[in-house]
């Protein structure tokens, strides 16, 4: 039986939690608000919060200055493509680890994770050279492959965590029923793991979307995603807050909305099964 909580305490909790939540969210809110101001209002002293003349001119200006839709498209293709590619490679690997574990399974998992700790700068120049050699510099496919490799350990581990929840007897039943390994994975395992695969997909799309080392260093004009789009606003000369805010809002809006819709699944997946 849950104890009844004094309404006063509940009110205090609510007030406190909402204040903290608002404080954490405030930088994003402020960015969104500023994106609708004129440049003059954006640097007004004292700052104005709501009572300004709302305008869409910053969004128009950003659209004119750079081809937003191309950056957006590149982001979608690179983030989505690398994730789907990674999942296709990770599903069989996670199957092996979850259902035919050996003494080395844990070591392999931890080794995979440790490859993520390799400092990217340490290998930037070699990768750069390889990219030139194979003509992959500033191509979407090149970036897709690199981001896939970066996120592969996380994808394998998340899928492994989800697969382990599926009872092995069900896969054995499929084997008894005459399913080949391929049919077992396609007809039984994958449909049963759909929720897990979906949250793995979402999280890795977000990670790939926000990745800002390789995307900045391996692209120029053609394949540059939104990280590069926004980085072009970092030069100190001619900085305009309202336009910067509009560009920022445009860069984060798609993933912010996606993230909000899927926050529950994301958290469960990210704990690697260590927190239930």
């Amino acid at each position: 039986m849950a104890r009844s909580i004094a309404p006063r305490r509940k009110a205090i909790n609510t007030l406190l939690a909402w204040s903290v939540g608002f404080l954490i969210f405030f930088p994003i809110l402020w960015t969104i608000l500023t994106s609708f101001k004129t440049e003059a209002a954006a640097i007004a002293n004292p700052p104005v919060f709501i009572g300004f003349d709302w305008t869409l001119e910053n969004y128009q200006a950003v659209m004119e200055r750079s081809n937003y839709s191309r950056f957006l498209w590149n982001s979608i293709v690179i983030a989505g493509g690398s994730t789907v590619l990674g999942i296709l490679i990770a599903i069989p690997a996670a199957w092996s680890m979850a259902f035919v574990p050996s003494k080395r399974t844990k070591d392999i998992l931890l080794w995979m994770l440790s490859t993520k700790m390799l400092p990217a700068v340490g290998v930037l120049y070699p990768i750069y050279l390889l990219f030139i050699k194979f003509g992959m510099l500033d191509t979407k496919i090149g970036l897709m492959i690199v981001l896939m490799l970066i996120n592969l350990p996380i994808i394998v581990w998340m899928l492994y965590t989800y697969f382990k929840e599926i009872p092995g007897e069900i896969l054995e039943a499929a084997r008894m029923d005459g399913a080949t390994l391929r049919e077992e994975v396609i007809y039984i395992l994958t449909p049963m793991a759909i929720p897990g695969i979906a949250s793995t997909l979402l999280l890795n799309v977000i990670l790939a979307w926000n990745e800002a080392f390789w995307t900045l260093n391996l692209t120029a004009a053609k394949a540059a995603p939104l990280t590069a789009f926004i980085a072009s606003y970092s030069s100190p000369e001619g900085l305009f807050y309202a336009k910067l805010s509009a560009a920022s809002t445009m860069a984060i809006a798609p993933i912010l909305i996606l993230g909000w819709f899927s926050q529950k699944q994301l958290v469960s997946g990210l704990t690697f099964g260590a927190v239930k």
């Binding site: 007897e169 069900i170 005459g178």
Partner: peptide, 20 residues
């Protein structure tokens, strides 16, 4: 011979039905 080809059917303790 792999399990599928032995012509045997099995009923598991947990029933192992395909939930989907």
């Amino acid at each position: 011979v792999p399990p599928a080809k032995r012509g045997l059917a099995m009923v598991f303790q947990s029933y192992a039905l395909y939930p989907h």
